[in-house]
Amino acid sequence: MKDIAFGQYYPVSSFVHKLDPRFKIVALITYIVAIFLANNYYGMAVCALGFFLIVLCSRVPFKKVFRSVKGIFVLLIFTAVLQIFFYQESENAKVWQWWIFTVSDESLLHAGFLVLRLALLVMVASILTFTTTPVALTDGLESLLYPLKLIRFPVHELALIMSIALRFIPTLMEETERIMNAQKARGADFESGSLLSRAKAVIPILIPLLISSFRRAEELGDAMDARCYAGSKVRTKYKKLKFSWRDLVGLLVIAAIVVGVVFLKRFGAV
């Protein structure tokens, strides 16, 4: 369970940590657009370079960032396999063929490209959660979505729900581990057997977890009421979001990546 690195704030002080969360969210979206704009390895190299720069400036260990790929590992393999065997564009560069499976230089290159794209995507997204506290993240989101309030979209509530969800990730992970241990001690087996029996084995974990989550939700509701929570009417904000020179530097970096990728598109697609 402890391998799930995604969503866990990494508490150090760094350039990236101090960026305005609104900027970070917009920058992440821009970066993702850049990744999808990049259509060849040159462009992807620029994205990767930008990624390494960001990680270095965030003081989050590379090991932790790389670990966030673990969650989508199966997806990556699946994508790669699909691409390698079923990618067909030109018939002339075949390396190996059997029945309906074809492997070519192109398909290999293409598969590598897609895997890189997906991995970068997830890792950069994880940098956002590593360097931004849930409250800052949701404050940023709330502020960015503010215009939606005009159409009566419950922006504040949505942001609060998100921050509470993030806050409870470690608590529920701990709880899951505890329940798993208890059921294991009663002979439950989660590691072997058919898919069906493994799915069934989840029930003794899931039900206690659900019940305790309901209990937690109820108690949290009471605690929030007792602490005078009454929606966003009179609410003030302790942490005010402010843009600083750092965001300007960040903006330049992101802009450089986008310009680089767009410029390098001229060298053709993979």
Binding site: R178, I179, N181, A182, Q183, A185, R186, G187, A188, D189, I203, P204, I205, L206, I207, P208, I211, S212
Partner: peptide
């Protein structure tokens, strides 16, 4: 374990107690 009542899951007391036997 601590607070073992939070590991109960079955529909009836019988089924819950029998869980270990089943395994």
């Amino acid at each position: 374990f601590q607070y073992p009542e939070y590991q109960l899951f079955a529909e009836s007391v019988y089924d819950d107690v029998a869980f270990g036997l089943k395994n």
